[in-house]
Design a protein around this nucleic acid. Structure first.
Length: 328
DNA sequence: TACCAGGAAATCG
DNA sequence: CGATTTCATGGT
């Protein structure tokens, strides 16, 4: 991507950025350490640094938007944030390929056209998505922040707030279960402790997984306690650049059924469809679909179905009462 | 109150 | 093996 960069007070400014919308990037479920401000900007802690990101449309006739990054400089941008935001990748071409002969995908893309898949740290992604299982996104965010405040390094203040980095493997490995218990982890506490111990014993082995093939990486990640197929796909997609990964969760399963009419036959049907339909761009497709489903409320129970379950509930109660009566 | 939440591990047949 | 049950907790 071609863009102009200027250093300004307290940060930098990039003009001519295309396919970049902070709300799409941070609210498509790939990242948990962000906070939205009233003005639409996002503050993020990553890699023991804090930045604030804002994007506004350029002057009429100019392509792309103007991106401002606060609390950083040009050197750090090239060393860290350019890769973190995946700015070297041509998302226009990706969207064009995905939308070709696929009206569902074209519509999904129109809702999340500014999505980019961040390049996050493997260790942070590993633990974050172990925490994600069977929980809603606000709760996951709360747990991650609690871990950082309790066990992470203090990385400074910005905008009048104190920020903490993600805890080192050592810090979580030697944490006491009762301390972790204060972070709303539930039964995931044991997973975090065991996985942290495994990584702390040999941190390099985690970072080597990125170089392995998809199948080998998938297997290696599944060997961590608390990591199964879905979480392994998330880690590979969000921190290892394995973009053919396609995490399937409850949202995606329902959405694939509603939008593409598949999945009734089970998980394997989705896998083969995804490979055929999206090829090695499956991960990008998943993010567009996930954002679309969440912003449109797809996958939430429809009103009619909700009424059905309410009726079924009433029916169960009524029958139970009848049983109780017949007992007498 | 009962049910659900970006699932994975243990257990069952 | 594939299918089902259990797991701890907060929110609604």
């Amino acid at each position: 991507m071609e863009y102009n960069m200027k250093e300004e007070k307290g940060g930098i400014r990039l003009e001519g950025i295309s396919d970049f919308e902070p709300s799409h990037i941070f609210e498509c479920g790939q990242c948990f350490r962000w906070a939205r401000k009233e003005d639409g900007s996002y503050t993020i802690a990553a890699g023991n640094r804090v930045i604030r990101v804002a994007c506004r449309k350029g002057p009429a006739g100019r392509r792309g938007c103007t991106l401002t990054l606060k609390n950083t400089d040009i050197e750090e941008f090239y060393g860290k944030w350019q890769d973190y935001f995946d700015l070297q990748r041509d998302y226009g071409a990706i969207k064009e390929t995905l939308a070709e002969n696929d009206d569902v995908m074209r519509k999904a893309i129109s809702f999340g056209e500014g999505i980019r898949i961040l390049n996050q740290d493997e260790w942070e992604t590993l633990i974050s998505f172990i925490l994600s299982q069977n929980r809603s996104i606000p709760l996951i965010q709360r747990s991650v922040e609690a871990l950082c405040r309790r066990f992470g390094p203090r990385i400074g203040t910005f905008d009048g707030k104190t920020y903490y980095g993600f805890p080192e493997p050592e810090a979580l490995a030697r944490a006491k279960p009762e301390d972790l218990g204060n972070c709303c982890l539930g039964y995931r506490t044991g997973y975090v402790l065991k996985t942290a111990a495994k990584v702390a014993a040999d941190p390099q082995s985690l970072y080597k997984i990125k170089e392995a093939s998809w199948a080998e990486a998938f297997q290696a990640l599944n060997d961590f306690p608390g990591v199964g197929p879905k979480v392994a796909n998330c880690i590979m997609l969000f921190s290892m650049g394995k973009y053919e990964s396609f995490p399937v969760d409850v949202w995606v399963r329902r959405l694939m059924n509603i939008l593409y009419g598949i999945g009734e036959e089970g998980e394997k049907e989705i896998g083969s469809f995804v490979r055929r339909q999206f090829g090695d761009l499956g991960g990008f497709a998943q993010q567009y679909l996930f954002y679309y489903a969440r912003t449109r409320g797809l996958g939430k129970r429809q009103q009619t179905e909700k009424n059905k379950t309410a009726e079924a509930k009433q029916e169960r109660i009524r029958r139970k009462k009848n049983v109780d009566r017949s007992d007498r």
